[in-house]
Nucleic acid binder design. Sequence first.
DNA 1: GCAATTACGCACCTTTTGGTGCCTATAGGT
DNA 2: ACCTATAGGCACCAAAAGGTGCGTAATTGC
Lengths: 126, 126
Amino acid sequence: MAAPNVYDSACSARDALELIASKWAMLILPALSRGPMRNSALLRKIGGISQKMLTQTLKDLERNGLVIRQDMQTVPPHVEYRLSALGNSLSEALITLDRWAERHSSDLDAARERFDADHRARTETA
Amino acid sequence: MAAPNVYDSACSARDALELIASKWAMLILPALSRGPMRNSALLRKIGGISQKMLTQTLKDLERNGLVIRQDMQTVPPHVEYRLSALGNSLSEALITLDRWAERHSSDLDAARERFDADHRARTETA
DNA sequence: GCAATTACGCACCTTTTGGTGCCTATAGGT
DNA sequence: ACCTATAGGCACCAAAAGGTGCGTAATTGC
């Protein structure tokens, strides 16, 4: 079989990439890297996420073996989510990306302003 | 000012994260890491991308200072895209992710099969 | 005995994303 | 004279992502 290649749209590595190329996955997995968390805790930690997206993304991550869901079978419900070994190995790479975003967000902001100013200037003189 | 934090939906680091949490950005930037490429070369290299998405993503990456667009001003058009220093630092992290996807895609596949089989079993016995 | 809590499922609706076909301009090949 | 290659722009349409409100079940606190 051919070596997995993300540039091949028919390769399952591409599916894997699409799974992790989601802003919610990129926040949820790193959030779980310090230990298990409950639904409500994740909801509080991850600003702007809706209950629906959290549930949906967690289920998808669980389905792909990155997250383990532990239902305490109590009422009211108590469910904990934690990383699998696989999920943990991924979350390290994601944390790197998150930190990159934090470190360089101002660079991106500045570049965007320059680009837009430049673009405005061009259309004015055009 | 507060330190940039991707978990805060109002922080510009979140915008940065959303920019790079795109499957096309995660393929285009690494593709450019070995040197400049033309539109048509990228189109060939990145399986499944449409001309529209390539143009759109490249423009967005250029706007945010990650990619530099060099128009040779000839007819027929000759345009080259290359990474800025900023884009290069990001592409390293993205390459790590791409490689993770390639290395672990089969693990994800296996987990998905297990999950789905399990889920089918449960709904049958329910 | 009434309300709140918890972790969702479901249906409905809006917004965003992405695909496709058609257009441009000009040099070079046949 | 005509077709091709090049790097897109633009408009229209289909599909997917995401938000919101409503319901559920039993136990604990008031």
